[in-house]
Design a protein around this nucleic acid. Structure first.
Lengths: 213, 213, 213, 213
DNA sequence: GATGAATGAGCATTCATTCAT
DNA sequence: CATGAATGAATGCTCATTCAT
């Protein structure tokens, strides 16, 4: 089965593994993503990967060390690409409201632009967290979380928010979008989150904004 | 390792498998839950279950048919208990606002009362959906979804909501609570959702309520 | 390939694994011994063992845990049988000379009665010593060594020996017989050690006995 | 890990592979010896060798053709060096007794001067014998054996020996020393055989010398 | 109903060897 | 001569499931 060409996906992988020498590496990641999404991570066997990626077993291990390593490589590539997208959108926000909207929009844009990667991230997170790369994952999460909370903690911005615990903030902003995106990725709902991005942003804003009264 | 006594958990299982004859069945489910949460579903082997539940292999198969069957039994027990809790809270709601609040509170109460079951449900959902019980799962989801949407579709209630697609409603109401509960269950945040139940309900209400203006 | 019947071998294994229930265990050990001697330990694969012993892979692992465990079980069975034989012969010795002779004779008798086990022990010793059972092996060796040295250290007996270090004693008594037995087992010499047992005993005696002068 | 400098070892290898061009060859042999003794022959992988010898895979294959070839090259280098040492000592013997003593001394001297090579020879012999160089090994052994037996068969010398089969002779002379050296190399005894070389020679002499009576 | 020995297909991984550069 | 990426057959082992007792 030939791996479908997907320019956006390719761009993400080239960001993580640039150059002509890494072409095989990217082909493997591409094929692996398809397998993992089609059958699940555990059920995907090395043999299936080898077939789908048109690579030898030795090659797989030469480049990624283990199946777990392959999953982690794919996961972190996706995570990085998502982070880049979010940072871009976020950095252009000039007001509190724009910051909230940027976060929601970036999230929705990412999931709809890279549904394959997003679906994979949902299912891979738990296994990466338990595996040998769990520490790295927690570290990255902590850093990103702190940076975002710090942005909102800036006095002028904080004044625009309800006086609710910082712990809650990210859940309030992203929770609804995430829930709908999960439902969409699993087929429970049909309409693309992209169509609802403004409503999701508005809803998030209403949740966190201090009432004018 | 003896299975810890947990009255609330026991109650859930007695609800699904009542009577003295089903005592072994309940003990197995209890031990299995612990194993699945500790190691994950796939990594848990029949041998580990047998050890933890102090049951024989034959016993496990006699009562649940297969590992998949055991997972499904546990999953649907949990799902049922959650549904009962939600229905109770929901049925006492007399206004739109109370309905929204009841949904969020019931969700938070369920997760904090049964963190083990909740954690299990998050990880088991995907595998149950792919397995032979997937149809049943989808059927149940559809029914519950319809019932809830119908409740909100009642004209007087609908008038109090923003004019947003019905598809979006449940995500807007439950998304934030779910996101925070996931974070709590995975240890990313420390404070119990129980402490934030009113804020989560208020936030949800602000998201979906039609602005007074 | 049917496993050859060998009453003496069977007796050794029944000594270690008695009863009808252990019949399969004994059959596996018998077949494994043949494989290990024919091809060497490392080159023998689980598949070869399974074929030769007419057992399933699962069976092999059910009974011995690992290939290494199978090697160790065989090794310690052989070691025990050898120890029993030596102790018997040794316990009947009433003089220093008879003790020396008993040791050499027991050694030669063991090797010629159980050439298969003896050949196996020579090749397995190193791998058992490096594996997880190495500690047990060293412990046993130490105990046997001490017991023998203690016997010879008894004053009246010691008076009959040259005044050489105790460390050297066992090498002087058993070294020549061992060397010839190795040569015989590997085919370098043709005549059975059994034919030379009295000469080997006499040579050992001359090496360690205090000259009359 | 840098390969320790060991002049005696270097000398042995320069004897087999002289000149500056063979320097890499010697470095590989040196590193391989360390690996083989540390982990065993089978468990040592090409990758470990490459790392330890600081050579490329291609290099290893260029110089020795295969792992088996590397083992054989090391084995025969050691064997040759041992033979040279024995011949030297032996050629200076002017009496039967001196011949016996020379053999034992040469053996002990060799093992204590080259414990690494000696340890390697013990473990490599079986695998070389089974491999494609087995014929060569047997040929060499036969020649050496014949030469030694011939020396002792000379009438005047034979008259000084017990009337025992020639087959037995080498075992009687070398067996005790070999047994003790094995014990020393494996750590079972602590005192260097070098300290006992005269006793071992004397013991061997007593075993084979015709009693004066 | 209960038991646990037996099964064997299937898996992740290793590693000696090759060969294009 | 030197390199090391690529190969893929082969290996030890796991584990859900069956079934005779």
């Amino acid at each position: 089965m030939p791996v479908a060409l997907n320019p956006a996906l390719n761009a993400v992988l080239e960001q993580a593994y640039p150059g002509a020498r890494a072409q095989l590496k990217r082909r493997i990641l591409l094929g692996a993503l398809a397998c993992f999404n089609e059958h699940g991570i555990e059920p995907t066997t090395i043999d299936m990967l080898k077939e789908r990626c048109d690579a030898s077993v030795g090659n797989l291990y030469h480049h990624f060390g283990s199946k777990e390593g392959l999953v982690a490589a794919l996961f972190f590539s996706a995570m990085d690409a998502h982070a880049v997208l979010t940072d871009e959108a976020f950095s252009q926000a000039t007001s509190l409201r724009e910051g909230v909207v940027a976060l929601v929009h970036a999230y929705v844009d990412w999931v709809t632009a890279q549904p394959e990667l997003a679906r994979f991230m949902f299912q891979a997170r738990a296994s990466v967290a338990k595996g040998p790369h769990g520490q790295e994952l927690r570290q990255r999460n902590r850093l990103r979380g702190k940076a975002l909370v710090a942005w909102f903690a800036e006095p002028e911005r904080q004044a625009g928010l309800r006086e609710w615990p910082a712990e809650l903030l990210m859940s309030l902003i992203i929770g609804q979008a995430e829930n709908y995106c999960r439902a969409w990725l699993s087929g429970r709902v049909k309409t693309s989150p992209q169509q609802y991005r403004d409503m999701l942003a508005e809803a998030a804003w209403c949740s966190v904004a201090r009432p004018v009264a």
